[in-house]
Design a protein around this nucleic acid. Structure first.
Length: 417
DNA sequence: TCTGGGGTCCTAGGACCC
DNA sequence: TCTGGGGTCCTAGGACCC
């Protein structure tokens, strides 16, 4: 006891696709894509059989179909994923209370207090994998190591459906030969930049002076990556933190930015965002709008207010101003996406009750007062609580119905506000 | 045939204050 | 008449992750 690594990273394999194969036995062993179609949309998740052909999440459907002609596209049971993932987390909770869930399908565990009950990291990892397989029916990979970063790399190496334990003292031997892309925070751009200096493995990165890496990648990124490669990762397993921002976006296809389209889309997005803020008892001071034009050119405009906002109407008006500022700077261009997000969040429980407090109403002096806006939102929230989210509301974006991902998928991706 | 939706963190430049 | 240096906040853009 006390002689082995105590941080585990547990990560469900190709989670959405595995659930589909669990629910529909005919799909087992076959290359499948959740979401998208051979003619459009994007693949949200791919089974390991599909990944073998190069299919991956985020890939346009037509490209996936070309890479893998026998690929089966399935619509996805988005309402099933969250409860199933929660059951997996319950298995982890049976082992240790020290769990840090970092997304729907992965979590860190600190098992330092659990080893006298369940054995060392290898035993605990095997136990978790067996229980998730037997009781839920899903493959899960587990990495165990001295630090979170190392445990996460170990679980990636273990995939699919494996267990990798990095013994204490064996960290360098494990890390050095691995490609630098496995370091958390190294994506295509950083990887390419490092390769231009001949840095291809984690060992290469660790052996490069920190100052050189920082000059190459910027101070913060360089410092962090070098520390990780050098196996210097002091992070503890912690409980959840609250979101720092709340946002929503909608892909539109290609359209001229007509006032009607912009207004309807932003009202819908502002409604989603502000409703979630109110549910979480929060409001935010900084409003950011992103407009994506054709060829994926994205432009953002933001505004920081003196007072936090959380009403749908106020947020809609601010978002409209910001969006038009961006659109006017790109005269004649077509737009393909609009996004609204609010940051600089603060606790706002009192304002929800005290409707006579005046939230900011910077424009349109003749429009409803702050109190009236809060009252409108409060009634809408109450109706939704009683009769469901769709009972009342702003029309979803025009024209985008068939491109849009299901509502259940959006909810899955939402973080706790 | 042409790319979803939810987030986090960092950088650089400018405004402003002391 | 010209000028230091540090700190904070805001805005826009970008890399990255799931």
């Amino acid at each position: 006891m006390g002689a082995g690594p105590t941080i585990l990273h547990a990560d469900l394999d190709a989670f959405y696709a595995s659930v589909e194969q669990l629910l529909t036995p005919q799909l087992r062993g076959r290359p499948i894509a959740v979401g998208g179609s051979p003619s459009g949309g994007v693949v949200l998740a791919a089974s390991y059989e599909a990944k073998a052909f190069g299919v991956s999440g985020g890939m346009p459907g037509w490209r996936a179909a070309r890479l893998c002609p026998e690929l089966v596209f399935v619509g996805g049971h988005f309402d099933r994923y969250q409860p199933i993932a929660d059951r997996v987390m319950d298995v982890l909770a049976d082992v240790t209370p020290l769990i840090e869930r970092i997304s729907i399908d992965e979590a860190f565990c600190d098992i330092s207090g659990a080893q006298h009950l369940f054995g060392d990291a290898a035993a605990v990892g095997a136990l978790i994998r067996r229980r998730v397989r037997d009781e839920i029916g899903l493959p899960i990979s587990v990495g165990a190591a001295r630090t979170k970063h190392l445990a996460k790399i170990a679980s990636q190496v273990a995939k699919p459906d494996g267990l990798v334990v990095v013994p204490l003292g064996g960290e360098r031997a494990f890390l050095d030969p691995l490609p630098v892309d496995l370091v958390w925070g190294v994506g295509p751009v950083t990887s390419e930049r490092l390769a231009s200096r001949g840095i291809r493995t984690i060992g290469d990165l660790a052996a490069t002076p920190s100052t050189v890496v920082e000059r190459l990648l910027g101070h913060a990124v360089g410092h962090k990556l070098h520390a990780m490669a050098a196996d210097d990762d002091p992070r503890r397993v912690t409980g959840g933190r609250r979101a720092h921002s709340v946002g929503a976006q909608s892909a539109l296809g290609r359209h001229s930015p007509t006032p009607e389209l912009v207004r309807a889309t932003l009202a819908h997005l502002a409604d989603r965002v502000s409703r979630r803020m109110r549910e979480g008892g929060r409001a935010g001071r900084t409003v950011t709008v992103r407009v994506r034009f054709t060829e994926l050119r994205s432009v953002t405009r933001s505004l920081t207010l003196a007072q936090p906002v959380a009403t749908t109407l106020t947020l809609t008006e601010i978002a409209e101003r910001l969006a038009w500022s961006a659109i006017h700077d790109h005269e004649g261009a077509e737009i393909t996406l609009l996004a609204v997000s609010v940051s600089q969040l603060s606790e706002q429980r009192v304002l929800q009750l005290e409707l006579d407090l005046e939230p900011p109403d910077p424009w349109r002096p003749g429009s409803p007062t702050g109190a009236a806006r809060w009252a409108v939102d409060a009634s809408m929230d109450a109706i939704r609580t009683r009769f469901g989210r769709d009972a009342v509301g702003y029309a979803p974006a025009l024209l985008a119905r068939d491109r849009a991902v299901p509502e259940e998928f959006r909810e899955l991706a939402e973080h706790e506000v």
